[in-house]
């Protein structure tokens, strides 16, 4: 089914001290796919993403991006290879202006051509970001920050975007805006791995969804399983 894999994670183990956070996770994201990763808090979803980005070092297993292993590479190199992460909590630079935040997004770009075109595209995608470009990022609302964080990540021209709980703490209408933008981003050719706690939306939205719990991948669902609540609940709480 997965023709050309963008990201391949095989038997990934991550520990914090002696506490295991991810245990033997194996998953694949094909080029151009949107893949969801759902599970309760502490399931190891964020840790998996941080391991992909080289922020935490795995204790075992392999991570490959477009065929080449990226374990042990420094984060800034992984970014330049075409991977981007929008972390949980957005992490916009509150003291900087929106524009400065966007300029930081340009740092990880492989080349500086086509910046203007991308800027235009992003302004179309997230009009609020353009509207408030002179404002301090700390003054933005949660939804605006989320849009800024995604916009910033896009400016690095990633071929694959990891998003950690983009809907967290957002009003439903803003969630819709964000997910609509994600659909648009995917159509532009960017592969997406989406970590969410809102399982139902995610399963419905993504091509495929992995369910993770206690550091272990439990099962894989497709969009047609969105209404199969029983299976989801089982996966969340079953042992």
């Amino acid at each position: 089914m997965v023709a050309e894999p963008a990201l391949e994670i095989d038997s990934l183990d991550v520990r914090y001290g002696v506490v295991p956070a991810v245990r033997g996770a194996t998953l694949t994201v094909g080029r151009g796919e949107i893949v969801g990763l759902v599970g309760p808090t502490g399931a190891g979803k964020s840790t998996t993403m941080l391991a992909v980005m080289g922020v935490v070092a795995p204790a075992g297993g392999t991570i490959r991006f477009e065929g080449s292993s990226i374990v042990g590479r420094p984060t800034e190199r992984i970014v330049r290879m075409g991977l981007g992460l929008v972390p949980e909590g957005r992490h916009v630079f509150e003291a900087l202006t929106v524009e400065e935040n966007l300029r930081l997004g340009l740092i990880g770009r492989p080349d500086q051509s086509g910046v203007e075109r991308d800027m235009e595209w992003i302004h179309g995608l997230f009009p609020v970001v353009y509207e408030f470009r002179r404002r301090q990022a700390g003054l933005l609302s949660g939804g605006q920050r989320q849009q800024l964080a995604i916009a910033r990540a896009l400016l690095a021209r990633p071929r694959m975007l990891l998003l950690d709980e983009p809907s967290l703490g957002l009003a439903p209408i803003v969630v819709d805006t964000v997910f609509a933008a994600l659909g648009e981003i995917r159509r532009s050719g960017v592969t997406i791995l989406l970590v969410e706690q809102r399982a139902q939306i995610t399963v419905g939205f993504a091509d495929r969804t992995y369910v993770m719990s206690n550091g272990i991948l439990k099962m894989e669902l497709t969009a047609t399983d969105a209404d199969a609540t029983d299976r989801l609940v089982d996966a969340y709480f079953g042992s």
């Binding site: 922020v55 992460l85 992490h91 630079f93 509150e94 003291a95 930081l104 740092i107 990880g108």
Partner: peptide, 20 residues
Amino acid sequence: LQMRAAATDFRMARLLGVRT
């Protein structure tokens, strides 16, 4: 700008490709 970013949020700066 990169220095200010790294000073505020070191990890996020790296995630944006800042050569820390």
